[in-house]
Amino acid sequence: MLKIKDINVYYGNIHALKGVSLDINEGEIVTLIGANGAGKSTLLKTISGLLKPKNGNILFEGQSISGKVAQAIVKQGLSHVPEGRRVFANMSVEENLELGAYLRKDKQGIKEDFEKVYNLFPRLLERRKQLSGTLSGGEQQMLAMGRALMARPKLLLLDEPSMGLAPLLVKTIFRIIDEINQSGTTILLVEQNANMALSIADRAYVIETGKIVLSGSSDELNQSDQIRMAYLGGH
């Protein structure tokens, strides 16, 4: 579904992604794990069109999307839930969800998706008239995910959905990620919480200072000593 071939991304003089390649098949949950500053968010931003790769290619469902504007990429069915939720704090929960469906014209379908999102996150229904800036961190994460789902994406990019959340809430969020995947959405999940990420993912990539250093099935990586030491708190 998504094929990234040898992309290089720069911030000015800083070489942030060095020849990264990555594949995602339809229906999978793929996770990208790595330390702070390894280039995880940079990769997601490049996929969703917020950053432009200097070279290399990104194919989404067989079509090249590298260098396209974010707007065009959303339209093709690829949504990105950015790091730090980035909800529109000055707008209500409902308005945030409406903006998620900004490019859609099918009123009936949008109405159905409102119901789907409220089913998935009942908390958002309770707070739908509330300004999203007043929500708790967990609720904002739910809103950011719900907002992305309103675009009816085929591929969902999730950047650090567990960041700053209480352990119980992290579990809930991961359960919902799994549910979203079960209902047919392919997921690329970026996480620092490697344990949780590997527990729901089919496959994983490990990124270090802008390079993919390891990849394989979640089980393989769970067994790997190198990973246990570096990311799983090594026992």
Partner: peptide
């Protein structure tokens, strides 16, 4: 209106607005 909501979204967070597909 839709354009008004887009205006508020862009004024709050330009990149997040781009991710919604807002021009």
């Amino acid at each position: 209106t839709k354009i008004g909501k887009a205006m508020r979204a862009v004024s709050h967070d330009m990149d997040a607005a781009r991710l919604m597909g807002i021009n």
